[in-house]
């Protein structure tokens, strides 16, 4: 056990701290996905308008998200805003902002795709019945797009959970950072801790993500 560094995990509250760190990752992901769904619905619908200005801005927005590594966005929000606006954002908040920015773009693109596939006459018959835009949105659009959003949302949650590992680089104490701390603290007592601890961190991320992705595959099969 010593040779593989696993003994460190059974010491004191180490395992507990690792799990708490995992919870931080989950928390950030879930909050960000929730925000992304709401904002995504709004922006996605906006994208279906014919307004050319909106079209250009949203194209740029989507391309930025497609092309910029999340790490860069984290740096910009965390280090940049302090400089430019003088704000002092907490690392975790910066993470939620960046993840929501990212998630909203993906959701918006999906919502737009779902919206243009809804046949035009559904809008027309709803309008003919006297429904206004908001009502049409709530009663016609959302139920139909929700079905498409759910598999992607689940997929996005897993990707976000994995991406939360990056936030240790801006100081958030999530599971990987906790792992580092444990290894540091046990430098002399357990020199091989790095192997066991990182293996366990891998396992923890796997346990967090795999069931969700299996569930998503199950849903896909059930609904298609």
């Amino acid at each position: 056990m010593q040779a593989l560094g696993i003994d460190v995990l059974f010491k004191g509250t180490n395992m507990q701290r690792l799990l708490l760190g995992l919870w931080v990752s989950l928390r950030i992901s879930l909050i960000s996905v929730a925000i992304s769904i709401v904002l995504g619905l709004v922006i996605g619908s906006l994208m279906t308008r014919k307004n050319p200005v909106i079209k250009v801005f949203t194209r740029i927005y989507l391309e930025i998200v497609r092309v910029m590594p999340q790490m860069v966005l984290l740096f910009i929000v965390f280090f940049g805003t302090t400089r430019v606006f003088g704000w002092n954002i907490e690392a975790e908040t910066a993470a939620v902002i960046v993840f929501s920015f990212w998630g909203t773009a993906e959701m918006a693109d999906l919502v737009r795709g779902a919206l243009i596939s809804i046949p035009k006459h559904q809008y027309e018959s709803a309008a003919a019945l006297g429904m206004n835009e908001v009502q049409i949105f709530i009663h016609i659009v959302i139920p139909q797009t929700l079905r498409r959003l759910i598999p992607l949302s689940i997929n996005l949650v897993t990707r976000m959970i994995k991406t939360t590992s990056l936030i240790m680089m801006i100081g958030v104490v999530e599971v990987l950072k906790v792992g580092q701390q444990i290894i540091e603290a046990n430098r002399t007592a357990s020199p091989n801790a790095a192997f066991g601890v990182y293996a366990v961190v891998l396992l923890l991320y796997f346990i967090a993500c795999w069931p969700i992705s299996m569930f998503s595959k199950y849903l896909e099969r059930k609904w298609c």
Partner: peptide, 20 residues
């Protein structure tokens, strides 16, 4: 490998494997 982050994989390869 699809369900774990690259960062953790790198840490394992770079810091963990040398212990073996």
């Amino acid at each position: 490998f699809r369900n774990t982050p690259l960062l953790v994989q790198l840490f394992f390869l770079y810091f963990g494997l040398p212990k073996l």
